[in-house]
């Protein structure tokens, strides 16, 4: 490795300040970090140490290749959202990523075994330009942008997360889908060394994790592939280096650590649907009127909450993105196609 890294300049001066950095804790802390770096820690010492305790984000700098860090730091800022962002520590320490264990805290503790660099993604099926691409080649010519999205888990909790990514449609257009491309199938990495739970005989999921979208859903501009969050490289536990984010569907549709994208004529099998078809449909659109057989979906717990305030809010149709996406489903009954 011959790359020179400077420990002093923490943020390249040319990069714009991403809105998530001005809205929440993160931001304020990032800028303070920058100031401290410029002015010298001695001068800022009292200020930084006095507020050092809650500043999770300052200490966090997920590893990743420099080209990706540069690309993420020059991402186009998001449109501001009125809802409060979920703090970085919760976004990165409360995850469902069963390849690393079923407890919410498992992925943050155990995902270090994942090696997101170098990373290859195989694009295949009904496309004119199939191929096995390195991530940097895949992202060439694609500009990143920040998207602040609500994330609604099927377990009835939700967060608000500033992702950094790009519309999936941009990638698909590069691969040039042909007329047989009716669905897009996604596959997570299958590697028992990198993803220890894939060894477990006690897991109910058949690995690798698989997800899928109808082509029109996949081409919708709100549907993104994310490579970062909070202006930083995606941490392993959040699905590094490349994950899907479909904000109007339950979180389990947003498949992590993608290695395969296949365009096809048939509707692809999806992991949770295979496991419990009566509980998890192919569509999995956020819908407060269609309950999970074992619990209501009318409300959600916006995290973080506290002991005495579970912070329960009403769940919105299509997670609040109905205006943009309801048209995709005008022909189907959402009660049967849940």
């Amino acid at each position: 490795m011959s790359r020179v890294t400077s420990p002093i300049i923490l943020i390249p001066p040319k990069n714009p300040i991403v809105p998530s950095e001005i809205t929440a804790e993160s931001a304020y802390l990032n800028r303070r970090e920058l100031m401290a770096g410029l002015m010298g820690s001695a001068l800022m010492g009292s200020m930084t140490s006095a507020e050092a305790a809650p500043s999770q984000i300052v200490d966090e700098n997920p590893s990743g290749p420099n080209w990706l860090k540069d690309k993420i730091s020059s991402a186009k800022p998001a449109h501001p959202l009125t809802e409060t962002l979920t703090p970085y520590k919760h976004v990165t320490q409360y995850n469902n990523f069963y390849e690393f264990g079923t407890a919410k805290t498992d992925p943050a503790q155990r995902a270090q075994t994942l090696k997101p660099d170098p990373w290859r993604v195989n694009i295949s099926g009904a496309v004119d330009k199939p191929g096995n691409y390195f991530l940097d080649d895949l992202l060439k010519g694609i500009d990143l942008e920040e998207r602040i999205y609500r994330l609604r888990c099927v377990e009835a909790w939700s967060m608000v997360i500033p992702w950094v990514g790009f519309s999936l449609s941009e990638l698909l257009k590069k691969a040039q889908p042909n007329s047989a491309a009716k669905y897009v199938a996604f596959t997570t990495l299958l590697d028992k060394a990198q993803m220890p739970e894939q060894n477990s005989r006690l897991s109910t999921i058949h690995w690798p994790y698989q997800e899928g979208l109808r082509i029109d859903e996949a081409m919708h501009p709100l549907c993104i592939l994310a490579v970062g969050l909070y202006g930083k490289v995606l941490p392993n536990q959040n699905g590094a280096p490349l994950r899907l984010v479909v904000p109007w569907k339950y979180g389990f549709k947003s498949i992590k650590s993608i290695v395969g994208i296949t365009l096809q004529e048939k509707q692809p099998p999806t992991s949770w649907n295979q496991l419990a078809p009566q509980e998890y449909g192919f569509y999995a659109n956020v819908n407060p009127q269609v309950d999970h057989p074992r619990w209501s979906q009318a409300k959600e717990r916006r995290l973080p909450n506290s002991l005495l305030n579970p912070n329960i809010i009403a769940t919105q149709m299509f997670n609040g993105y109905a205006e943009e996406v309801a048209g995709l489903y005008s022909n189907i009954d959402l009660k049967t196609h849940f």
Binding site: H90, Q93, Y94, M159, R301, L303, P304, N305, S306, L307
Partner: peptide, 15 residues
């Protein structure tokens, strides 16, 4: 962990 606010984003569930 409750006192130091270290029970995660859903302290009730953790407890």
């Amino acid at each position: 962990r409750l006192y130091t606010d270290n029970l995660g984003p859903e302290p009730a569930k953790t407890l």
